[in-house]
Design a protein around this nucleic acid. Sequence first.
DNA 1: ATGAAAGCGCTAACAT
DNA 2: ATGTTAGCGCTTTCAT
Lengths: 357, 357
Amino acid sequence: MDVNDYMQDVSDTILRDGNGEQGRTVTVLDVSRQSGVSTATVSRVINQSPKVSPATRVRVLKAIEKLGYMRNHSARALARQRTDTIGVVFPGIDSGFFSEVLKGINEYAVSRDYHLMVAFSQGDQGEHDRVAEYLQAGRVDALILMNLGMSDQFVRQAAQRELPIVLIDRPVKDARVASVMIDNRSGADAAMTHLLGLGHQRIAILAGPDGTIDAEQRFEGCQHAAKRAGYAFDKDLIWPGNFFWESGYELMNHWLDAGKPLPDAMFALNDPMAMGVMEAMHEHSLSVPDDMALVGFDDVQAARYLGLTTVRSPMHEMGRIASEAAINLVTGGRTQLEQVLATDLVVRRSCGVESKS
Amino acid sequence: MDVNDYMQDVSDTILRDGNGEQGRTVTVLDVSRQSGVSTATVSRVINQSPKVSPATRVRVLKAIEKLGYMRNHSARALARQRTDTIGVVFPGIDSGFFSEVLKGINEYAVSRDYHLMVAFSQGDQGEHDRVAEYLQAGRVDALILMNLGMSDQFVRQAAQRELPIVLIDRPVKDARVASVMIDNRSGADAAMTHLLGLGHQRIAILAGPDGTIDAEQRFEGCQHAAKRAGYAFDKDLIWPGNFFWESGYELMNHWLDAGKPLPDAMFALNDPMAMGVMEAMHEHSLSVPDDMALVGFDDVQAARYLGLTTVRSPMHEMGRIASEAAINLVTGGRTQLEQVLATDLVVRRSCGVESKS
DNA sequence: ATGAAAGCGCTAACAT
DNA sequence: ATGTTAGCGCTTTCAT
């Protein structure tokens, strides 16, 4: 053993090469031999077929146990033309939304013995192609696509394949696609109505980016509530946000730095922006709700921490429902193609009314 | 068409049955016929083998294009005994941590053309078994396991298989397992030192649950810093937290309700607990930092919103590194078996010192 | 550079 | 109830 070998040896204590020998895999054939039955019977036992006598079942089970057999997913998928997996594509950006949705998806998927493959779409075309390719190569039985940064073109392309697709929080323009949405309009309406009911006169709206369904519907909800209450918006108080924390922070900073008077209340069309607003106010030694009431939308986790009144989007449930729709589509079950989930107002201290957390 | 048929028809506009006909899949054989070469050559083209003449390559590519061929993952995986997929197991509970880590994992995985399969472990044994089974049936080439709720037994079992395993934020007790950790000790040390440097005399520690590595190491960091500064802890000021928001909230509420005097400063060993403390103080009309300085640990997103001084855990980077380790282990590359990532103090307003975001 | 053919491990007709 | 066997779609020696 020369010096190099020695060095090698030493570094092996902290470095490791990849997989060593693999010790031949145990297959159905091994099990069938061990238990003296055919591979078909082994397969039947594995798949819980009722057409196996209790006695042989036990024999096979024992052999499986003894040999440490574990069925191979790829082989099974290839034979069955089913992967028992559903693909989930999230946008790269995330407003604290996606982990909740994912958990909802997972919860139902697990209950049906399905697995999850996840991918993130960075929004650019190259990424879209990647994701599409990944998920269409028979890797998954269905696709759940989450809104934002997902071009229409992408959705259409995807729908062209024969994969069942479920869209979360995005409208369907294609009959082959199911969708799960939240009731943005009545959520916004409720928030607005709440603010009006509190007697606020000058209410600002921190709007969302043009062209996104959430932004549009939420704004419609505001208008509807205003109209019903006979309230007219001041154009100057409708701010052009983009759903990011920064936009709330910057717009409010500009406003304050310009010395303009605060509105009585503000409805930010999502939570991150509301939090940006809070931060800007804080830095100007202004208080929510004393100097201005504030409402957000979505009820992300931090909203609770900040005492932000907001409209709860049932993210977990969205995931669950989407998951259910996807799996039903795969298994041939019937599924409602379009589902709209209720939202509800969660009143916290940012409106000045203390109440239920 | 009778009434039932009619009803059926109507409901079909909103309901849909699962997958219809599948339109035979295009295989390598189809491509080989179309282009007049063997399937072997088609395979070579698909896999970018250099041993194909430019001319045939083009012919095959054209055929692929024309036929809309897309390689089948299961078949490929079965033949190659590789899935190009890495499995990621997260704990069911989540402190806002996991989505960041997941993105880090994904980022690197994508760069190496790997895919992600994710599962959540609910902590109970049944779940563990499920996850283990899922992920060991040849579905993935390697496993990344995230700390918390993952029993030692589970990790060992998993390691017994020949799957490369990478543990995030958990110590290794098994040579076959790689691990990525954060430097809890020096992070906690820095936070503690910061508090001491600010001149605080009575510093409380809101500790983490016994037996978790993070809780232990962070506490050690505190002790180390205290010792170096010649500071002695008041036993009463070491609170038994459990890393959940609720524990911070409740412990602080009890303390205040009991009329006990606030410490000068508190170091909560993770952010959620710190936020619980903030909330309890807020409800008692007490201010951070005026009535008590507060520091957290992890720098979850909400920490920024709340202006919480905290120790940043490089979650994204942890994911990246773990992903890299896992893939290197699979591809036979060399990998450092144990990696510890630096943490750093992020000073915000909760300590009374305004500064860098 | 290209082709023939033998699997990879499992399932599902079909037969008994 | 159980066995035989023909694939599922792709990769990969081994020839040529």
